[in-house]
Design a protein around this nucleic acid. Structure first.
Lengths: 122, 122
DNA sequence: GGAATGGTTAAGCATGGACTTGAGTATTGA
DNA sequence: TCAATACTCAAGTCCATGCTTAACCATTCC
């Protein structure tokens, strides 16, 4: 679908359970590629691909010294997703307030469910 | 695999751009299935499947009156994901703080965690 | 009652992505 | 210098999921 936004790449990275586990592990401190690969019942190469995905979207960072690559969490990596969520929670809660208002209204004919289309963005 | 947690289902729902667009649309107010299907260049059935996915993980809610099904945002739907993110951001930031402390320390042998923490990195 | 409207389900195709295999490169240590 | 270590890359397999088609309810309107 060609949605190459930051949010899109972060969500695609997080949707895979293995990658979330790698993030958990790294949030407890840096680790090398082989240290990360060890606990998972999968090949080195597979884990490496996950790491590349995580690094490509800015969730982790890695540095190679000699023949050892050390990975660590990129602290601000989840910020874009956190922002995306708060942006979307606020309208939702405004809508809730609206509903609350309507329900709190003393007496009046309930607004017809059929025509919702009257826009309500302020 | 088999990670059927709430987080997992929410992420799987959000990773699809079409479903995120549906959420955007619904955050501006409720809509029927056909109203939701209209702007997308895809079949009714496809949109319906997306709606079922969104409802299954608690991001939207729907109600059928007569032959018309009306969908709306479930206000607290994103909360589990928001929580997940804050839980993971705090350790990451603590780690940053920790690093900051160590770097700020005048002189002393670092508390040998596993060699990880002493990599200086601004 | 019968047609139109709005939605629902099931089956099947097609694509993307996770994972493997296998070969290759660079670094380290004896 | 040679072998072991640590990682990298490319190609291929396989399965989950998005989308379509096609048939099928249920409700509303004439």
């Amino acid at each position: 679908m060609l949605n190459h936004s930051k949010i899109d790449s972060i969500l695609r990275a997080l949707v895979e359970p293995t990658r979330r586990q790698i993030l958990e592990r790294l949030s407890r401190g840096p680790a090398t590629v082989s240290q990360l690969a060890e606990p998972f019942g999968m090949t080195f190469a597979a884990v490496l691909q996950h790491l590349q995905t995580l690094e490509a979207c800015g969730l982790i960072r890695s540095e190679k010294i000699g023949r050892v690559r050390t990975c660590r969490i990129e602290p601000g990596g989840l910020a874009p997703l956190a922002d995306w969520i708060t942006e979307r929670r606020i309208p939702a809660e405004r809508h809730l307030d609206r509903l609350g208002q309507i329900l709190a209204e003393p007496d009046q004919s309930p607004p017809k469910v059929q025509d919702q289309e009257k826009d309500e963005q302020t």
